[in-house]
Amino acid sequence: MATSDSPNEPPRSDSEGPSTEAESSSQPFLDRTSTHNAIFYILAGLCVGLFAGDALYHKHTHFEFEGWFGYYAFFGFFAYMGIVFIAKALRTVLKREEDYYGE
């Protein structure tokens, strides 16, 4: 696992680094940490709304478990998490150098 020298820099959170408001405003809109945070919180807000929305309509289901409150929301969240964690574990076994095959 190459977590220590990650070449992808996740967006800096407000609490760390030199990402002050003054510096951010000179950056393009989509590069600003404030924009990233806004997108994330809007997404989270939408999710909350959709989750609550399950109370407002009659769900058409084929299986009983589909009718559970927030089934698809939980499913999407945990299936995604599961896939990423399994893939991360798989990488520790399958990862090789780029010139492994010598081609």
Binding site: P10, F77, M81
Partner: peptide, 23 residues
């Protein structure tokens, strides 16, 4: 959207597997 939210959390917490030079 909940899957996307999961990505958002994994990315912000740096748990999402980084892209690296490897096969």
């Amino acid at each position: 959207l909940f899957a996307a939210l999961a990505f958002g959390i994994l990315w912000r917490t740096r748990i999402y597997p980084p892209e690296i030079d490897a096969i």
